[in-house]
Each structure stands twice: as C-alpha cells, then as structure tokens.
Deep mutational scan, measured.
Amino acid sequence: MTFKLIINGKTLKGETTTEAVDAATAEKVFKQYANDNGLDGEWTYDDATKTFTITE
C-alpha cells in the first residue's frame, strides 16, 4: 500500500510517499524521516486517504 506524508513545517513544506504493509510501518518510516529532517510537530492520520500530516 502507498501512504503519503504531508509536511507543513516552519521551514520544510511538501509531501512524500512510502510503500508499507500497514499504517504502523508507514508511521515509523515517516517519523524517522521527520526526525532526520529536524521536524517536530503534531501528527494526524486519515485512514480513508492513507495520509499522515505533520504540522509544526
């Protein structure tokens, strides 16, 4: 399955995708991506669209 991450950061904005077997796996990938890029914010997830959002 394809999951999307929408980034609404103070300095970084955009989106990225990952292929994962489930939402929990995708969340780990996206949280590592956010950590690697210095993002810290509030996370939301929409199961209907398989989309995570981080807002700083």
Rank of each mutant, 00 (worst) to 15 (best):
M1R: 08
M1Y: 06
M1N: 14
M1G: 11
T2E: 10
T2L: 15
T2Q: 15
T2M: 06
T2Y: 08
T2S: 07
F3P: 00
F3A: 00
F3G: 00
F3K: 00
F3D: 00
F3T: 00
K4M: 09
K4N: 05
K4D: 02
K4A: 05
K4H: 15
K4I: 08
K4P: 00
K4S: 06
K4L: 12
K4G: 04
K4Y: 05
L5C: 04
L5V: 03
L5E: 00
L5Q: 00
L5T: 01
L5S: 00
L5A: 02
L5F: 07
I6Q: 06
I6L: 08
I6C: 04
I6W: 07
I6T: 06
I7H: 07
I7N: 02
I7P: 01
I7M: 13
I7F: 15
N8L: 13
N8A: 07
N8R: 12
N8D: 13
N8Y: 06
N8Q: 07
G9R: 09
G9C: 05
G9Q: 12
G9K: 15
G9D: 05
G9M: 15
G9N: 06
G9Y: 11
G9L: 15
G9W: 10
G9S: 12
G9F: 14
K10N: 15
K10A: 13
K10S: 07
K10E: 09
K10W: 08
K10L: 08
K10D: 14
K10T: 14
K10G: 13
T11S: 11
T11P: 06
T11M: 11
T11G: 08
T11Y: 14
T11H: 14
L12K: 04
L12P: 02
L12A: 05
L12E: 10
L12D: 15
L12T: 07
K13G: 12
K13P: 11
K13A: 14
K13L: 15
K13Q: 13
K13I: 14
G14K: 11
G14L: 09
G14M: 09
G14T: 15
G14Q: 12
G14V: 11
G14R: 12
E15V: 04
E15Y: 07
E15P: 02
E15K: 03
T16W: 15
T16I: 14
T16P: 03
T16K: 14
T16C: 05
T17F: 12
T17P: 02
T17Q: 12
T17Y: 12
T17L: 15
T18E: 05
T18F: 12
T18A: 06
T18Q: 06
T18I: 12
T18S: 05
T18Y: 07
T18H: 13
E19V: 10
E19M: 11
E19K: 11
E19N: 10
E19S: 10
A20M: 03
A20Q: 06
A20T: 09
A20S: 13
A20P: 01
V21I: 07
V21G: 15
V21R: 10
V21E: 14
V21D: 12
V21M: 15
V21H: 14
V21C: 04
V21Q: 06
V21F: 09
V21Y: 06
D22V: 03
D22K: 04
D22C: 04
D22I: 03
D22W: 03
D22Q: 03
D22T: 10
A23D: 05
A23H: 08
A23V: 10
A23T: 12
A23C: 05
A23K: 12
A23Y: 10
A24Q: 14
A24T: 11
A24M: 15
A24G: 14
A24D: 06
A24S: 05
A24N: 10
A24P: 15
A24W: 13
A24I: 12
T25V: 06
T25R: 12
T25G: 09
T25K: 06
A26P: 00
A26E: 00
A26R: 00
A26G: 02
A26C: 02
A26L: 01
A26I: 01
A26K: 00
A26T: 01
A26D: 00
A26W: 01
E27S: 09
E27F: 11
E27M: 15
E27C: 04
E27L: 12
K28D: 11
K28G: 09
K28C: 04
K28V: 06
K28F: 14
K28Q: 10
K28L: 15
V29K: 07
V29M: 12
F30T: 00
F30N: 00
F30G: 00
F30L: 06
F30V: 01
K31N: 06
K31H: 08
K31L: 07
K31R: 08
K31F: 05
Q32D: 11
Q32K: 12
Q32F: 07
Q32R: 07
Q32H: 07
Q32N: 14
Y33P: 00
Y33S: 02
Y33G: 01
A34G: 04
A34Y: 03
A34D: 00
A34N: 02
A34W: 03
A34I: 14
A34T: 08
A34P: 01
N35S: 12
N35T: 10
N35A: 12
N35W: 07
N35V: 12
N35I: 14
D36Q: 10
D36P: 01
D36A: 06
D36S: 09
D36W: 06
N37S: 11
N37K: 11
N37W: 08
N37C: 05
N37R: 13
G38N: 14
G38D: 09
G38H: 15
G38V: 06
G38P: 01
L39S: 03
L39R: 02
L39A: 05
L39T: 03
D40T: 12
D40L: 09
D40F: 10
D40G: 10
D40Y: 09
D40R: 06
D40I: 12
D40Q: 10
G41H: 02
G41Q: 02
G41P: 02
G41Y: 05
G41K: 01
G41S: 02
G41R: 01
E42P: 05
E42C: 05
E42D: 14
E42S: 13
W43C: 02
W43E: 00
W43N: 00
W43F: 10
W43I: 09
W43P: 02
W43Q: 01
T44G: 13
T44M: 13
T44C: 04
T44D: 15
T44W: 09
T44R: 07
T44N: 07
T44Y: 14
Y45G: 00
Y45L: 02
Y45C: 01
Y45H: 02
Y45P: 00
Y45A: 01
D46H: 10
D46I: 12
D46E: 08
D46V: 14
D46F: 05
D47S: 15
D47L: 08
D47N: 13
D47E: 13
D47H: 08
D47R: 10
D47M: 13
D47C: 04
A48I: 08
A48G: 10
A48F: 11
A48S: 12
T49P: 02
T49Y: 07
T49R: 10
T49N: 15
K50W: 07
K50H: 13
K50D: 03
K50Q: 07
K50R: 12
K50F: 09
K50E: 03
T51L: 04
T51P: 00
T51H: 03
T51N: 03
T51D: 01
T51Q: 05
T51W: 03
T51V: 08
T51I: 07
T51E: 05
T51F: 03
F52M: 02
F52V: 01
F52C: 01
F52Q: 00
F52K: 00
F52S: 00
T53H: 05
T53P: 00
T53N: 04
T53M: 06
T53R: 07
T53A: 05
T53Y: 05
T53D: 03
I54W: 04
I54C: 04
I54D: 00
I54M: 08
T55Y: 05
T55P: 01
T55Q: 09
T55D: 08
T55K: 09
T55L: 06
T55A: 06
E56L: 11
E56V: 07
E56R: 02
E56P: 04
